[in-house]
Amino acid sequence: MQSKPIVLSILDVVSIIVLGVAAYLALVFAPTELVMGDVQRVFYFHVGTAWVGLLGFILAAIAGIAYLTTKDMKWDRFEVAAVEVSTMFFFITIVLGSIWARPVWNTWWTWDPRLTTAAVTELIYIAYFMLRQGIEDPEKRARFGAVYTLLGGLSAPITFMVIRLFRTIHPVVIGSQSAEAQGGFSMTTDMRTAFFFSLFAFTIIFIDLIWHRIRLGRLQDKVEELKLNLSL
């Protein structure tokens, strides 16, 4: 096991700093939204985590394809790292969304396209870990994992489109606003600053966590390999 690279140590410190700054911007710097009150401040982290959550799932599907074509275990480690970190972030997104929805939509949960797609995506990736747990052979585990992330990555956007046929009340803050959306608002300059900084901050934290998870994966593989050698 090589020692921790210096860049990673720096990234750790930077992650903590940007998280702190993002929290400051979201909680103190950004003005209070007049209609919804303080709960709107949840929005900055909600979108930040949602962004890296989605990014991770897309990266995982790409890593899956890369693994299937190259059969290089490093892609498998990357894929697991991306899925695991994204599942964690997506969980935060859903919880934050739910907390925001309670005062604004007057309900914890509604079967809106975004919410449903988020829930389904989360379930797909929980199933992903159950699948991996059931397979002992690391090579087969990697293959099946790659195939499943690929399927998941393809079905999630179609799920979104299908559920949109039913109805939506989720606000679209960036881009055009649906007439039925409830709880939308327009951002002031300070809000934008907080918003974009939180996107940036979570991207940094995401990279940092993935890096750590990949290193953990490497260690896992090494231990598994040694165990196999010993048992022979």
Partner: peptide, 27 residues
């Protein structure tokens, strides 16, 4: 009048930081 929804906000941020801490700790 702007409603006081700071309770929800605090709960949200506590959960966010808690989840991330748990994950980092698990790694």
């Amino acid at each position: 009048i702007t409603p006081d929804t700071s309770g929800y906000m605090i709960a949200g941020y506590i959960i966010t930081f808690l989840t991330m801490c748990i994950y980092v700790f698990s790694i």
